[in-house]
Design a protein around this nucleic acid. Sequence first.
RNA 1: UCCGCGAUAGCUCAAUGGUGGAGCAUUCGGCUGUUAACCGAAGGGUUGCAGGUUCGAGUCCUGCUCGCGGAGCCA
Length: 431
Amino acid sequence: MHKLYISNLSEHVGEVVSVKGWLYNKRSSGKIKFIILRDGTGYLQCVYFKGNVTPEIFELADSIGQESAIEVTGTVKAEPRSPGGYELDATGLTILHETHDYPITPKEHGVEFLMDKRHLWLRSSRQVAIMKIRHRIIKAVRDFFDDRGFTLLDSPILTPSACEGTSTLFSTDYFDLGKAYLTQSGQLYAEAGALALGKVYTFGPTFRAEKSKTRRHLTEFWMVEPEVAFADLDDDMDLAEEFLEYIVQSVMKDRAEELKVLERDLTPLQKVVRPFPRISYDEAVNILHAEGVEFEWGNDFGAADETIISGKYDRPVMVHRYPSEVKAFYMKRDPENPKVALAVDVLAPEGYGEIIGGSQREDDLDLLIGRIKAHELPMEDFEWYLDLRRYGSVPHAGFGLGIERTVAWICGLEHVRETIPFARMIYRKTP
RNA sequence: UCCGCGAUAGCUCAAUGGUGGAGCAUUCGGCUGUUAACCGAAGGGUUGCAGGUUCGAGUCCUGCUCGCGGAGCCA
């Protein structure tokens, strides 16, 4: 079946065509009516002149409400006055489903109202643009790793224990085996995969029951986590910067129209090219002190701190060697300074904060056992993980990229709730 | 969890303690090139919930519910 979509009408100028879609907006001026049709691929202005159509159709064009499903028939022509450059000199109109009182009018609305109507809000041009960019980012993620010999490794969603801390887990009953927890990260499983396949990445939803109520937090978010055997922290940072450059350049190349709909300033995105600045945690602390910020060595950076640090650079900045106390148990300590871990956070520009967290992993069995005890984690749940250090342990490293924060940054959005079709947040689980 | 702000028509918002309004949406009328079109008219309200102060509360006070912004925590 050959179907016609608005996005390729430019190949049909002069032809009589029929297009199915939804009524996005309409305007009328006595003997001429304009209907804006959307079909998911674009927007098409359909013009009804009173003299060109039957009185019934002319009347029909006036009566249908916003978001009615319709099929329009007419001649395609190039028209500079029309949004999109083409319009339909319409002669026919068929109503497929008539709609009245569509709640989201082409005017301003509040956040609560729009989130309650998220299933309908997705139809707006802005949300369509965001979803298309999100899709392009995810495609870039997969292309990047696939083209470099990585194997996709799907990690489990239901897991026996935490990776970070037990206070932030969603739990569910699991038959006779007690509780199961929704995964916070696929990383431990990615490590097993890296020692099997050399280079792997996991990609899927992750869950955090933190009561975080900020523009950068969801309880359910998507994360991609590469893991590479025989790699150290420097290799990890090389991979991260090449990865981010590839994603941003891919979106700018293929989604220019959508970025324009979002009125995204492209200047900062054009600067996202290698090499990215690499500074140590100590240097980052010095930056804060030079700015007059009271900051104690050993703490993690807050959102305001990250903005100050990243504001010193015009591209993503990689901050490495954090105090090991504030980082996860599996991160390897720096042999030259055991107080710091071989970890890296990548801070996005323009105040978007941390989008990547990564590290070289602890590959020594005894040190790892000591760390699990120090964090008071249940040793029995990690026996399988310790096996990775018993049998052919090698230096390895990886990182996690948060998809929603990346989408928010590239799209220039205020809040991550718009970056995912149906956001899950501390005070919202519907629709 | 803590701090701050808010809740009035379908939506976005006004209203000095003294008869609750506007724009958009809807319905009707007008307009042959509109760009969130425009012009005219009409309908549309238990002012989040429960108490209290007052001659009188949308407005002041107390509690609750819901939401927004931020913090902590994190990607």
